[in-house]
Amino acid sequence: MKEQWRLLQTGFNTAFSNMAIDRAILVANSQGKVPPTVRFYGWNPPAISIGYFQSVAEEIDVNACKKLGVDYVRRITGGGAVFHDKEVTYSIVIPETHPAIPKNILKSYGRICNALLQGLKQLGIQGTYAPINDILVDGKKISGNAQTRKVNTVLQHGTILLDVDVDTMFSLLKVPNEKIKDKLIRDVKQRVTSIEHIVGKKIHFEKVEAALKLGFEEEFDIKLIQGILTKEEKTLAIQFEKKCFSTTQWNHRR
């Protein structure tokens, strides 16, 4: 019989809640209270997440975010700033010692990204993993990913773009040199793609979730069983949201 992992489809939540839920699952899994878990989610309102090592002041136009009703949050994972709008976000939480996960961090990025590639294949999209943490289709980025390892547990989360609005994205993100901003926007438009752009029609969030579910099942030879957050995870998530991810102290710490 195939190993069973938990599937969570938590729908659309705020940036603070989303990051808090991922962290709560990480804690619960590290304590052996929940099985390896794959989660799919979205962001409402749209939000920017920045990597653990990034500086809010250097990456985000806070006033523009306020004006457009976009939240921002610092992740517990490294990597770059992401504008989360029309996308499916996933997370996977699994013990570091699980045989499915290579000990080598870079190799484990590749293994988890393979699940996403299998998922994209379900949608008729052929992509490639581009180390360190991207997935490309026709040489353009469609997915960014970030991993942390804490208390012997792996958390990797990432995005798969349904559609992308580079102009809005750059009205919210700061660029190192304002003089070359227009060129930068043109470059990024050339280097980023999305599922809807590739297939040439609107694709529903749920359809991508279903494709990615199959991708994870195939790559890891497991069965994903629909589940819910435990009471303890919910309580933890509320605590993390309140005491960490929604606070200025956390988000502006760098």
Partner: peptide, 15 residues
Amino acid sequence: IWITGDFFAYPEETI
């Protein structure tokens, strides 16, 4: 000194 950027470090807090 403040070291920021889009890199990865494990464990993160050691930065």
